[in-house]
């Protein structure tokens, strides 16, 4: 399959008062056309920062290194003016809270049309017509009426749909969705996930789904990347990682997620707390919480290595991982 995005050795660093914090390190992955990649991790794992860096949306004190190649252009370190030509057109991003990315004083119609006028040189009328069509395609009932509304007049699910419509207007090759359903109700979340599936099929868009919810991942994604402490710890297809996790953290996450179908007496959570990026443990960042850590893990950091079948993991432990009661 054609590759639409290739990220190599990417890193993100934030400068604080007297110190530097490495939010993302040694990130490598590629995204194929029409594929859905889930990026899974808890808060502070660097999952959002990595993609904000690709979009050139890091906070002022943040710096990105490495390459993020879209075809033969590198998005990292590209001047803002040049980046603007690609953002929205070739690569778009939607966020957890759509209200923060919609201008509350402009009608939905105006905001959507603006994107087309800017990137596609549409005239206003044509742009508005295209905007309304797109609203309909993302499943908004009465698109003409909604197009004339202001963002605050719409419900949460509706706003997220508007954001998706806006992101898809220029038919970008890549759509990055950062926790797009976290703020929504389950029934609306199900609608949205359904929408994502149709979108990748109909438009051939590649989707990056950043989330902490493994339930969301299972239904939508093809491949997944698990992040911990700013690094990818395991990569592979969704089925491989769910049914045969090789990294203790992936396994721990799976055991921490309550499953509606089998009710266990107790969950088997990962012990301890996620590390702060400023004070990552020596060796493997996960070692203080890992049930399988041995002496080597305390001193040496396991590199992300291929384990066959296109899978990668960053862990020295090779033994079986029968973990607690649930297996």
């Amino acid at each position: 399959m054609k590759e639409v995005l290739k990220v190599e050795d990417m890193s993100v660093t934030f400068e604080l008062h007297q110190s530097e914090v490495h939010a993302v390190r040694d990130m490598n992955f590629s995204l194929a056309e029409g594929e859905t990649l889930a990026v899974v991790g808890e808060s502070g794992s660097g999952k959002s920062q990595a993609f904000l860096a690709i979009m050139g949306l890091l906070a002022k004190n943040g710096r990105a290194g490495g390459r993020a190649m879209m075809g033969d252009i590198n998005l990292i370190g590209m001047p803002a003016g040049q980046l603007d030509k690609h953002r929205g057109k070739d690569i778009a991003m939607i966020f957890q809270d759509p209200m923060t990315s919609l201008n509350p004083t402009l009608k939905v119609r105006t905001q959507l049309a603006e994107v087309l006028v800017k990137h596609r040189d549409f005239d206003k009328q044509k742009a508005t017509a295209a905007a309304i069509e797109m609203l309909e395609r993302v499943g908004i009932p009465e698109p003409v009426k909604r197009a004339n509304a202001y963002p605050h007049e719409l419900s949460g699910g509706m706003r997220q749909r508007v954001m998706i419509a806006m992101a898809l207007l220029c038919q970008p090759k890549i759509l990055i969705a950062d926790e797009p359903t976290t703020a929504l109700d389950v029934t609306v979340q199900a609608q949205m996930l359904d929408l994502f599936k149709t979108l990748t099929e109909d438009f051939g868009t590649s989707l990056v789904l950043i989330t902490h919810d493994l339930g969301v991942v299972a239904g939508v994604a093809d491949r997944m990347m698990v992040m911990y402490g700013g690094r990818a710890v395991e990569k592979g297809t969704v089925d491989d990682l769910f049914y045969d996790p090789r990294h203790p953290y992936t396994l721990g996450l799976l055991h921490s997620t309550p499953h509606i179908a089998h009710r266990a007496a107790r969950l088997d959570p990962i012990q301890g707390l996620p590390p702060s990026l400023e004070h990552l443990p020596k060796g493997c960042s996960f070692n203080p919480r890992c049930a399988f850590a041995f002496d080597r893990c305390l001193v040496e950091r396991p590199p992300l290595t291929e384990t066959g079948n296109g899978r990668e993991k960053a862990c020295f432990y090779e033994g079986p991982m029968a973990y607690g009661k649930v297996a």
């Binding site: 389950v186 029934t187 979340q189 199900a190 996930l193 919810d213 493994l214 339930g215 969301v216 991942v217 299972a218 239904g219 969704v238 089925d239 769910f242 049914y243 799976l254 997620t257 499953h259 509606i260 179908a261």
Partner: peptide
Amino acid sequence: TAVPIPDPKLA
């Protein structure tokens, strides 16, 4: 039915 289940095949 809307509850996401962490099981790709079932999902």
